[in-house]
Each structure stands twice: as C-alpha cells, then as structure tokens.
Design a protein around this nucleic acid. Structure first.
Length: 577
DNA sequence: GCCGTTTTCGGCCCGACTGTTTTCAGTCG
C-alpha cells in the first residue's frame, strides 16, 4: 500500500484526468463522467481508501461505474490511475493547471500548447508578456491581457474558496445595496451560499426587476467592485476588492422563483429536477416550468416543487443526496433551526482565554432567551489560555454559585473543556470531573500523530465515564489546518455506544464536525451538540453557522442535545457510573 | 464513462457574454 490517499486527493486526480481528456478532445460525456465521480468522492463522508481496504463495492455510489471503480481501486492500492498514465503519454499533465486560468478552456490550452509548446503558467505568462499570444488565431490583444490578469488572480487567490462567514460579510451588504435600485422587487443570494456550504467559490446574486440595465449599472459603479469581468443587461460578473467573484443576474419578477431554484443548485439537484420535468414531458429552466409553450409555474420555488410532485426542499439539502426521493414520499427531515436551541454547552470566560466575564456571558445568554448556559473554560493543559487548575476550577464554582443565586430564569451549568492528552488521559482527575455538569473533551495539541495513535488516543479518552461531549472532533481549521488523521467512523461508533454527544463547533473557522462528518455521526447513532465555543458575548451569534452545517447533515431538533430543556438535558448527558 | 418504473443502447442542459470569426467559437455557470 502506498501513501494513504485522502478523498480530496483522489477527487483531485479524477479532475485532473478530466481536464487532460478535455484538452485531448475526448468524448465530452466521458469527461463529465470523471468530473461527476470526482464530485461524488469529494462529498463522501467515509474515506475511499478505507472503503477499498474493506473491499466495498464502489459502484454502489452514484456516478461510479465499473471502470472508474477499477481505476480508484488501482489508485488506492498501487498509487497509479491507469487512464491518467495513459493520457499523460500524449498530453503533458501540467497543462491541467492552465485550465485554472479564467477565460482559458481546453481548446485554448490545446492551441497554446501546439503552437508555442508551452506547458506551465510561467511559460504562458512569458509568451503573453512578449505579446505573442495574439499571433494565434482566435486570440487577440484583449484576450492576451485577460489571460495575464487571470494568471495574476490565480496566483493571488490560490485554490482557496472563501469561508462562508467571510463571503457573507461582503455579499449581504452588496445584495442590500442592489435591492435599493429602483425597479428591484427582490434580491437574493443563491448558489452554494444559499445552500450554506462551508466555503463558497463565488457569489450568485439574483435580482428581480423590470430594468436589468439599471441594476447592472449600479453594480459596476459600486465602491466594493474592483474589476468588471463582464457587463450585460441580464448578467454581469465582477470581482470585489477582497477577490471574491460575484455573478449578478437580473430576472423578471414573475420568474424569480424559477431563477432562484435554478441558481441555488446544486448542479446535480437541478439535473435531477429537470429530469423529473422531462419525465412529465415538461421542461424546467431558469425561466420556469413549461409544458410546450405554456408556462406552468415560475413565480415561486414552492409551486414548482409542488407541480413536480415534491415537497419544498430546504436549500441545505439540495445536494442530490436522496432529498428528492424523500420529498416525493413526504419524508424530508424537519431540520433543526436556531430557535430550537435552548442553550450553549461550550463557552469560555475571562477565567481562561475568554474576553468577557462570567456575568457578562450569562447576561448575553439571557438576552438571547437561552434556558441554560454551560461555562466550560479550558483545563490546565492549555497553559497559553490560562487553563484552570482544580483549585481555580473550585473557585470558579463558588463564583458561579454566587451568581446563580441572582437568576431564576437561567440555569448555569458548571463545566470544563478538558484536554485529551497524548496518551488518551484527560487533564483533570476523575474526582474533579465527577463534580461537573458538563465535560467537553477536546484535542488541542499533538495534532500530527499517526492515524492509529490518534484513534487509540480518542477511544481511550472515551472510556472515561465523565467524557460527555467530543469538542471540535477533527481540530481542523478551514483553509488553515487539516483535520487530524483519525478513524472517525470507529470513534463515532464508540461515541454512539457510550452516549457521548459529538460537537458541531460553530466558530466559522472550525465548523467541526463538518456537514458530511456530522451526517456520518447521525448515521452511526450519535447525538449532536451545536456549540458556539464562545470566547466573547457576541460569539453567541455565531450559533447559526453551526446550525447551517447541522441542517446540511439532515439533523432534526431531536438529534441535537441542546434543544432539550435543562432537565431533559441532564437525562441525555452520559449517565454516571 | 455512467445510467435505466421509458431504456443494456442512446441519451447525457443550455443560455449569456465576450472577443474576434464578417456569422460564431469558446468559456462559464
């Protein structure tokens, strides 16, 4: 067995193969087949390498047939993807990188390669700077400039997608400004943003108006817009100052629902819906649901779904993961909402690394109508965060008791965010943990240990009867730190067996567990805790980011322990020995 | 190359925008 491949690596190689096939002029449907497979693999919660090891039949998964399953099996066991090796003999693999340049597609890459023998971004940049790209038929001076721009942008942004919360902070104000343009009746952000994916590649902004030109003129004049990529009367693309790309589309108000549906996606969800329309001899596009020339529905998403025999599907579920079958049977889950959350089970105060006092945190929870709040400052291992020794924890308990006497409308739960040490022991002794209402156990150090060690570490920690909630289980930080290498499936099984709840940490940089792993946790029978991990009072407002991912995982209120009343909560928390 | 209460063969989305091509190809979403 060669180096263990992650799903992302496998999906990346499938994408690369698709790029090369496309440059080579292969059957476009064959190209798409590899892209579809890449998407399936990237969205899978289980590790494909694990599945191969266990001899699972990969053709069970959508868009993976005999050939691709065989290729993946070979890739995992030998490190080679035979069709990739085969095409690499004819098409230099580096050419796939050029496909990343905006405005450059397979035809362009092929022409550039054949004419200039260029292979890399550096090659392309040199030829473009020398003004020779325009020698090629189909390329002109403008295109040459656009490619240089594209190269620069690619180098600046890398492959990183923007975190949802970051994108939100610029996209929502822009939406609101466009909504004020005369003639606009509605404005909404669609795309992966509306599906609440943890990161977004760009923003799809939809505006209902009778005057598209007015909106587009307003858009390109906006202060946040740094560059205009295209500017039409129904569609424009701009790049904002921070590098985020925004596609704006103007549609007439009477087809807003159809457009919202269409541009919310996902692509696969749309394909499945359109197929459903075709099955009924209808046609579904961004302008509406049509029977021949006649428009059946267009104004609202609900009506279109209904006409197709489906319940309205929440955007978070529109990933072609069985939601259409569920909507047909009327068995879509009733997804958890922020309103259902009765309290936060993981948060810090200035006793450790929080910014605000115990009292301020309690007040903030009360203002938000919470029934309870858990105070879970760090245990002693996290020295840099001023982690609490048993003595200081006891002092804090007294302080909490004194404060609790003043409130009859909120229950204050005494807790701790305990560190899972390298050997799987916890950083506070059992007799101290036994006195706490809430014990969140998390990993903060020794993140680079082997998969076997990491798995053993967590399984051992879970043997401690006081382990109640597994905090930010994979320790990943979006765009910054990879998740720890661990047999998550096994750990989730252990958590389910022992009644340990698994956290969805709502900090925008964490979102840990992520959507697919949270779905896996539910499949394994785990309960979830959606926590803000608040380090300041305003962090309570981050809760919705955790809710988003829980909804994407298909979680209902019943799946989430902090939707329970304080009394019920004690019942579902791990029972004491 | 995948997929199948139409099918194991014949489908697989298509419209908007740009640039250069004088009527449309390439790219994108």
């Amino acid at each position: 067995m060669s180096k263990r491949l992650k799903n992302r690596d496998i999906a990346g190689l499938c994408e690369r193969l698709a790029d090369l096939l496309e440059i080579d002029g292969a059957n476009p449907f064959r190209v798409r087949a590899w892209r579809n497979a890449a998407e399936t693999i990237a969205g899978l919660s289980q590790s494909v390498a694990d599945l191969v090891e266990k001899d699972t039949d990969l053709t069970e998964y959508p868009h993976i047939g005999q050939d691709i399953a065989e290729g993946i099996r070979s890739l995992v066991t030998t490190g080679n993807l035979p069709p990739l090796d085969e095409i690499a003999a004819r098409v230099p693999p580096e050419l796939a990188d050029l496909m990343q340049v905006q405005g450059l597609g397979p035809k362009g890459v092929k022409a550039l390669y054949e004419h200039f023998q260029l292979r890399t971004l550096d090659d392309l940049e040199r030829v473009a700077r020398e003004g020779r790209v325009r020698e090629l038929s189909g390329f002109g001076a403008k295109k040459e400039g656009a490619l240089l721009d594209g190269i620069e942008r690619l180098r600046a942004a890398g492959e990183q997608r923007a975190r949802l919360a970051d994108a939100e902070s610029v996209a929502v104000p822009l939406r609101d400004r466009l909504a004020e343009t005369p003639g606009v009746t509605e404005a909404a952000i669609a795309g992966s943003f509306r599906r609440r994916r943890e990161t977004v590649g760009d923003i799809d902004l939809l505006v209902a108006t009778g005057d598209g030109d007015a909106v587009m003129d307003r858009l390109v004049a906006d202060d946040d817009v740094e560059r205009v990529v295209s500017h039409g009367s129904t569609r424009s693309t701009v790049i904002l100052g921070g590098g985020l790309q925004v596609d704006v589309r103007a549609v007439s108000p009477d087809s807003f629902g159809a457009a919202l549906l269409y541009f919310t996606g996902s692509k696969r969800h749309n394909v499945a819906l359109r197929q459903r329309a075709v099955d009924r001899d209808w046609k579904l596009n961004e302008y509406g649901l049509h029977d021949g020339e006649e428009s059946l529905e267009a104004e609202s998403e609900e009506a279109i779904y209904r006409r197709l025999g489906l319940d309205w599907i929440p955007p978070e579920l529109r990933e072609d993961g069985g939601e259409i079958a569920a909507a047909e049977k009327g068995s879509l889950p009733e997804l958890v909402t922020a309103d259902a959350i009765r309290g936060n089970l993981h948060g810090h105060t200035d006793w450790s690394d929080g910014k605000d006092t115990l009292e301020a945190m309690i007040e903030a929870a009360r203002e938000r109508g919470h029934d309870y709040i858990a105070i879970t400052d760090h245990g002693p291992r996290v020295r840099i965060a001023n982690g609490l020794s048993p003595e200081r924890l006891a002092e804090q308990a007294d302080a909490i008791d004194a404060l609790a006497a003043r409130y009859d409308d909120i229950t204050i739960l005494k807790g701790c965010e305990v560190d899972i040490l390298g050997d799987g022991s916890l950083d506070l002794p059992d007799d101290v943990l036994a006195r706490l209402d809430i014990v969140v156990c998390s990993i903060h150090y020794e993140l680079r240990r082997s998969r076997a060690e990491q798995t053993e570490r967590v399984l051992r920690a879970m043997e401690n009867p006081h382990f109640m909630i597994w905090g930010h289980p994979t320790a990943r930080e979006i765009n910054r730190r990879e998740p720890i290498d661990i047999d998550l499936e096994r750990c989730l099984e252990a958590a389910a067996e022992r009644g340990i709840a698994v956290e969805i940490n709502a900090q925008p940089k964490r979102l840990d567990l992520c959507d697919t792993n949270a779905r896996l946790a539910l499949e394994k029978g785990c309960r979830l805790a959606i926590d803000t991990d608040a380090h300041a009072t305003h962090h309570f407002d981050l809760l919705r980011h955790g809710i988003d991912q829980a909804r994407r995982a298909g979680a209902t209120a019943a799946d989430v322990i902090n939707t329970r009343s304080a009394t019920d909560l004690r019942g579902v928390l791990r029972s004491r020995p």
